[in-house]
Design a protein around this nucleic acid. Structure first.
Lengths: 150, 150
DNA sequence: TGAAATAGTTTCATTATTGAACTATATGGC
DNA sequence: GCCATATAGTTCAATAATGAAACTATTTCA
């Protein structure tokens, strides 16, 4: 590995850590009692995936299935999610938002948008587009090479 | 907030989550028994900050000081860090790496570079430079507006 | 000198995570 | 049709990260 690559990686680690931590902190502060950070991510995914299963979540979030069971249990207890079993293949359990969960999620989503949007003003539209596109390409590469047995 | 902003934020959240989770998963897998993800971040910071204190760490990582005490305790128990008290102002405790800690950190750092570097090959140098610069600008904006009382 | 500020720790509760063992269900080869 | 294997999900025990509030020790300053 050349020095330039090392420097890029070091700079990336620095800023990735800083940005991730700050966003997490702001979300912790503004999401309040309703949802933790991780719970928001999970609820957001379930909201966007029809017929979402635990295995899909575990795969998407790159964690073990037992971790998903734990998170989902807490969200079911809180009245935010419910499980339904597939009658054709009774091994499959689908996850979905309750009405209450939907309202919690939508207000959390609003909060998160309010946290992030002020930063957009400091950038040119074309730069934002380029930044996100590159980030998405990175994400895609990671998704392709990714995978977790469990 | 306009629709374009909402879409950017949604795309950012998607890819931010994906990339963060994948990197975490890979680090978990390759850092092995030696260091957790968060521990690597903490050790990396201490390595780069002379006379590092708990308060500085808490501020940089945007968490409470009790969280730092817990992490540092585990790392001291593992023989990776040691504390020294400032004789001039005995409230201050400086954190530093032991020799063992340094060797653990350097090999972890090597692992992390190996995890990330393959992805660099898929991008143009000038694009990488631009991407990191924008990310750094975002980080800087967040740092300025940031802050946590505790 | 005494009150307020600062640095850090302790304690307790909660959440996220792993890994291994487990249950229930489905599938496919013979 | 039946058994071995695969798949989906859960349970359980252990560990780590975190916040909040109460606490100790030290310093500063009016």
């Amino acid at each position: 590995m050349n020095d330039k690559a090392k420097q890029w990686i070091d700079r990336y680690l620095d800023v990735y850590q800083l940005v991730t931590r700050r966003i997490s902190a702001e979300m912790r502060e503004h999401l309040g009692e309703d949802l933790t950070n991780d719970q928001f991510q999970v609820v957001r995914l379930i909201n966007s995936m029809p017929q979402c299963t635990s295995s899909q979540l575990a795969d998407t979030l790159a964690v073990g299935k037992s971790s998903i069971t734990a998170i989902v249990n807490r969200l079911v207890d809180a009245g935010i999610l419910y499980r339904t079993r597939d009658e054709a293949d009774r091994r499959q359990v689908y996850l979905a938002l309750t009405d209450y969960g939907t309202s919690i999620f939508e207000s959390a989503q609003e909060q998160v948008r309010n946290i992030i949007s002020p930063y957009l003003k400091h950038f040119e539209e074309k730069d934002i587009e380029m930044f996100i596109s590159m980030f998405e390409k990175l994400g895609q590469l990671m998704q392709e090479s990714g995978g977790r047995k469990n």
